[in-house]
Amino acid sequence: MSNIKKIENLTEIKKILWNGSINLKITHKSSNENIEFLIQVYRNSYLPFIYEQIITYFKNFLSTNDVKDFNKIWLEYENVPLKWNYPSGVLYDYLYLPGNFNNQQHIWNLDLKFETADQKYPSDYIIPTRRFESDIWENNLNEILVNQLKQSCFVINGTSKPIMQLSEQNSKNLWKSIKFRNLNEFSYVNKKILKQVKNIPIKLIVPSDAGNVIQVPGSPLLTLKEFLKMNCSNLYDISIPVIQGIDVTSLLDLQLIEIWELFKHLDNVLYITNIIKS
């Protein structure tokens, strides 16, 4: 985990954050053998973008006798299903980092699960998917992400009109920029959504087995320290605030608007994970 002492070159830091990634080792445990697959995922992207690659690889080793439906797929870490609607880096920060804060490995080990006759998709814990004719996971992710952008747009502007009034072409370009990792295109379209910052959309993740998420808007002029003391005072002295995998203790005196402009995710939400000090 790294620590930023002060923010100097915003453009350069944004590029570094945009390209930040996590190495995954995905294992499927069958009755005969453990099958492994290595892949990278971007921190500020989403797991469904790699599901097609995962399915294609594991189809080489599994048959329909082993798997009821290859599209009923999910990943788990220490028996906790991963919420695919959350950014990959956020999942890593609140599930993996608390137990590995001072001893981070270079690979995050995850278990791959498919729905079978004996094992159902955990729809009571993670969002179930709708059926589409093609690109099932990407279309589901698109729906969820657009909905999350509408929610954050409302918090930021006091209205959802900026995103509702995007042209069809701009809406398509926004999705393409997210899917194909085009920072310049994403920034160009996203600016059309951010008209007037009245509040900062924040998801505050506090310690629990699966991460307890508190959604709370923050005033742009509050400092990060003031916000944390207001919303998790019992944790302030015993936890470390982590944003995009970075210990931001040294940025506590910055205003939320500055923190958000730098660290917001693709859904324009600022995710803050509290990790208990060892």
Rank of each mutant, 00 (worst) to 15 (best):
239 S>H: 03
63 S>Y: 06
108 W>F: 14
171 S>P: 00
37 F>D: 01
170 N>D: 15
191 K>P: 00
44 N>A: 13
219 S>R: 07
191 K>F: 08
10 L>D: 01
74 W>L: 11
199 N>K: 15
257 I>T: 05
20 G>D: 14
18 W>T: 01
101 F>L: 15
97 L>D: 03
27 T>I: 13
143 E>F: 07
234 N>L: 14
122 P>K: 14
177 S>P: 01
134 S>R: 12
57 Y>K: 11
117 A>P: 00
9 N>S: 14
16 I>Y: 06
211 G>T: 02
139 N>C: 06
12 E>N: 08
276 I>Y: 05
99 G>P: 00
36 E>I: 03
125 Y>N: 06
63 S>A: 10
267 D>F: 08
250 S>N: 10
3 N>F: 07
97 L>H: 05
25 K>R: 13
103 N>E: 11
213 V>T: 05
34 N>A: 15
2 S>F: 12
231 N>T: 02
35 I>V: 06
118 D>N: 12
250 S>H: 10
113 K>W: 11
230 M>L: 15
151 Q>S: 09
249 T>M: 14
30 S>V: 03
100 N>P: 00
212 N>G: 02
227 F>P: 00
230 M>C: 04
30 S>I: 04
273 T>S: 14
12 E>R: 08
169 Q>I: 12
28 H>G: 04
60 N>F: 09
190 N>P: 00
207 P>T: 04
202 I>E: 03
2 S>N: 09
110 L>Y: 07
52 E>T: 04
200 I>W: 05
138 E>Q: 10
105 Q>K: 15
160 S>G: 06
211 G>R: 05
195 K>H: 11
258 E>W: 02
78 E>G: 02
202 I>A: 07
43 R>F: 11
51 Y>G: 02
70 F>P: 01
2 S>W: 09
256 L>P: 00
180 F>A: 11
183 L>F: 07
270 L>V: 01
242 V>A: 11
228 L>K: 04
259 I>T: 01
48 P>E: 09
265 H>L: 13
260 W>F: 04
43 R>H: 10
88 S>T: 09
6 K>M: 14
20 G>S: 13
54 I>H: 03
278 S>A: 08
122 P>V: 13
271 Y>P: 01
15 K>G: 10
177 S>E: 06
274 N>A: 15
136 I>K: 15
150 K>G: 01
226 E>G: 02
143 E>W: 03
5 K>F: 09
123 S>R: 06
195 K>V: 09
54 I>M: 09
9 N>K: 15
42 Y>M: 08
27 T>V: 11
133 E>R: 09
144 I>A: 12
199 N>L: 14
161 K>S: 15
39 I>H: 12
119 Q>N: 13
235 L>I: 02
77 Y>D: 05
82 L>Q: 04
90 V>T: 05
41 V>H: 07
219 S>M: 13
89 G>F: 06
157 N>I: 08
209 D>E: 13
212 N>T: 05
178 I>F: 11
248 V>Y: 08
109 N>K: 09
262 L>G: 02
204 L>P: 00
157 N>K: 14
20 G>I: 01
